[in-house]
Every structure is written in structure tokens, then in C-alpha cells.
Design a protein around this nucleic acid. Structure first.
Lengths: 241, 241
DNA sequence: TAGTGGTCTAGACCACCTC
DNA sequence: AGGTGGTCTAGACCACTAC
């Protein structure tokens, strides 16, 4: 794998390809790559250029960096999504058989609704809403971080009554509501620093971003606006038509 | 917006936040940002540090770089409602009103099915299939690149009969099929070099990756397996429940 | 030609992890 | 302590776009 330093293709791209080739040829999931200095020396490029190349492989889910430890080949390269063992679920509430899962409460507070939240929930910007952040884990590894916003008045003392677990179950059992999805918007996005920290995800790993409005019954009041950020290397979205 | 150079937060992160704040406060979609040199001077950071900050905003779909021209604030993404019957052009019509759109044929060939394609279409690996790559544009800017795989036998001379435009219309009108979505899988992924080139997208911009199986009627033969890679800064997916 | 973003090199220091 | 990745600075040159 030689680097053409005067051709039209950037050096970092060629280096990334060379490393990708070595991964598929020689390296197994979990194995450590040589240190950045060593790799930079091997390809005779600057360490920054090498890092740029590795950035792309990290972003595509081939490699994972651990500060102080090294750079490692990921368990499950994203390139073989069909072999992925992850269960899909449209709701992300029902994660399936054979994989342990749990929900951890990260934050529970009231806050002033911004324009987006207020618009969706049918409130005025500045109105106070519940804000709940939860982290969902699959096989003891974080997969999704969800921020829920709920109107204050129909849900008195939610801060006391919700103690983790299924939020929808709480809305049903404690308040008699019947939350149903009204719509869902899906986008792809890189994580913020906070999201990356919660998900233990590299900054370059794209996340699926699902924004969902839940109403009470078919066309009742807006009950909950949720923004879920999911590592799509851990969980894919599947829609049955 | 001051930069704390000795705190725990990286400078580039603070710069990114500062720029994001200015975007929401002052700048409108399509407007140009000051040049990198100027911004670097304003925040008193090196141009590389500034670029690192802008990288994140580009990746999140806030900004778009055009070499030789400058860095621009992105438009808000459009919605892509997903129903069993929706096709892309109908969707744009629905969004319609003021957005032009078109489909460009990038490639049309036969090729041997790999394991994934064969599995989905119910063929054997190595069987010959049609492969069609199309590029969809909104407002004259590429938004989605789609690769379609179709079985060879039920669709003789597809290479001659399909000349661009709606593939589903061709399946209906030329062959009498009634293609319907069977399922869709959604993931987030960074672009390959080829995808980035076709979409004129930065390498850091995550794409929505939709894989769809279309059957003839409700449970007929597998007609088409399509993998669509979409700039989610241009087109969002919306699911009505 | 002038201005823009894209890439590469060089050197330095820091934060984190293991031993 | 020693090795790893993370960040920042500095300077240079290139490729693309508009005029």
C-alpha cells in the first residue's frame, strides 16, 4: 500500500484506506492498533495527517480511540449491517429478547420551554415544563440518550412520581393517560460533547436523532415531546409497512 | 462570548458554541460566515483550531463549506413523510410549493448479487441483478443518492426501458407491477468518498441510510431493494403514526 | 489576481491510563 | 514513570472560485 504524494488524492485518504485494508486482512475485533507515532512513522506522514486518516475510520465505526490506552478495532464493523444482531424496534421502548437492557435516570428537573419545545407541546416559550433525561443501555452498554419534555399542569408531582423505568407506564398508571405517538422525525447527527460522554461514543460516530410527539389518545393533548439520540451501530430503526 | 483558555473545556468547543450562538442570533440561512482567517483572528485562536470548531458545526448541518467561496449557514431540512405508498417525487410535491426537484441517472448495469442483496431479494449470491444508481436533487442541489437492486428475470430489458425519472412508475407502466414498501431500516452513517462526491457533501456530514424492500403488492415477489443515502440537513424523515 | 477553503508538516504540551 | 491519545500553535503550499 504505497502513498502517492503528488496525485490528486489526499494523503490522509490513502492512509485511511491502507489502514482499513490492514484491519480486514490482519486485525481482529478488540485488537489494538500501533500507536499514532508508530503509524505516522510507518506511512512517513505527520502525526496530524495520520490522525485525520484515523478520524475517518473512527467515524465509520471501524476503530475506537481510548485515551491513554490506544486505538482499537471495533467489535462490529458498521459495514456488515445485515449481520448485525441488534434487534430493531420502531418504538425503541421494546428492546428484544436475548439482550439485557435497562433505563437510567440522568436528570429530572423543571425548566423554561424554548421555542421548539413550546411549539410542539402547544405552550408558550418560557412556560415551565418537566425535563427528564434518561439513558438506555443494551447489554450493559449505553445505546440511547433520551430527553423528554412534558407539560407541567396535567402532570403534577411528576418529579416525585417518576422514579426511573418506563415513563409511559408512569403516565398511564399514575395519571390515567394513554400516550400514543403522533409523529416521529428522523435525522442523522454527530453527537454533542455531552451526548458523546453519556453514550461513551467517539465524537465522529453519527447518531440517529428521533424526535417524537406523544399525545393522549388519538388526538388528545400533547403529553410528551422526546428527542432520542441513538448509536446506530448498537440499534437500528426498522419500520414495517 | 469569551474563551476560557485554561479551563477544562477545549477551546474549539467553546469557539463552536460561540459561532453557533451567532448563527442563531444574527445569521440567516444562505448567509456567508467571515473567512476562516478572520474568525481565527477574532477568537484569537489558530486557524486549525478554528477549523476544528467549524468541523463540528458542518457535521451537525449548521454550516456548509464551499471551497473557493466561503462557509455558509445551511437551510433548515425539509421533511420526508414516509408512508407505504410515498415516492420521492410525490413527497417533494407534498413539501412542494417552491421546491424544485429532479432525478439524475448515475449508473445502470447488471452485476452479481452479493450476499446481502441476494438474501433480501430471495436470490442466490452470484445471481445477476439490475443495479441502478440515481441522484435526487432538491432546489438543484443533490440531496439523496439511491442504489436500487432488482431481480433480472421479471424485468427483461429494464436497461432499455428505464431512462431516468420515477423507477416505480416504470415498474408499473412497463411491467404492470404494483411496488409497495415491505419494510425500511434506518441508520446513520458518514459518507464514503464516492457518496460525498455525488452529494457534494463534506466528509464529516452524517447521512441517513434507508434500506427498503419493495414487493409487488402486499406479499408478492421481492421487486426492488434500495439503499438511499440522504443528507439529513436537506431532507428529514417524518413518520406519521 | 485575490480570496477562499483543503491539506500537510513541525513541535509542543496536556490529560488519561497502566504499571 | 512511561506510553497513549487530545489539543493548540505556527507556517506553508495547494485547489477552487470569482472578478
Amino acid at each position: 500500500m504505497d502513498i502517492d504524494r503528488w496525485g490528486p488524492r489526499p494523503v490522509y485518504e490513502q492512509v485511511a484506506e491502507a489502514i482499513a485494508g490492514e484491519i480486514t486482512a490482519h486485525l481482529r475485533p478488540g485488537e489494538r492498533l500501533p500507536a499514532e507515532d508508530a503509524l505516522a512513522a510507518r506511512f512517513a506522514v505527520n502525526r496530524h495527517t495520520l490522525r485525520h486518516a484515523v478520524d475517518h475510520l473512527v467515524a465509520r465505526g471501524w476503530l475506537e480511540r481510548r485515551r491513554g490506552l490506544g486505538t482499537f478495532v471495533c467489535d462490529r464493523p458498521l459495514d456488515y449491517p445485515l449481520h448485525s444482531q441488534t434487534r430493531f424496534s420502531e418504538t425503541i421502548d421494546a428492546i428484544g429478547q436475548g439482550h439485557s437492557h435497562g433505563t437510567r435516570l440522568v436528570r429530572l428537573a423543571t425548566q423554561a420551554a424554548d421555542a421548539e419545545v413550546a411549539g410542539v407541546l402547544g405552550l408558550r416559550p418560557g412556560n415551565t415544563v418537566w425535563r427528564i433525561d434518561t439513558l438506555r443501555e443494551i447489554d450493559a452498554r449505553p445505546a440511547t440518550v433520551i430527553t423528554h419534555w412534558l407539560p407541567l399542569e396535567p402532570l403534577p408531582e411528576l418529579g416525585l412520581r417518576y422514579r426511573g423505568g418506563s415513563l409511559h407506564a408512569c403516565l398511564r398508571d399514575a395519571y390515567g393517560f394513554a400516550p400514543r405517538r403522533s409523529w416521529t422525525r428522523v435525522a442523522a447527527q454527530l453527537p454533542t460533547a455531552e451526548e458523546a460522554a453519556l453514550l461513551l461514543a467517539p465524537r465522529q460516530l453519527p447518531l440517529l436523532r428521533l424526535r417524537t410527539l406523544n399525545r393522549d389518545g388519538e388526538a388528545g393533548i400533547a403529553l410528551e415531546y422526546a428527542v432520542a439520540r441513538t448509536r446506530s451501530d448498537r440499534l437500528e430503526l426498522r419500520i414495517e409497512h
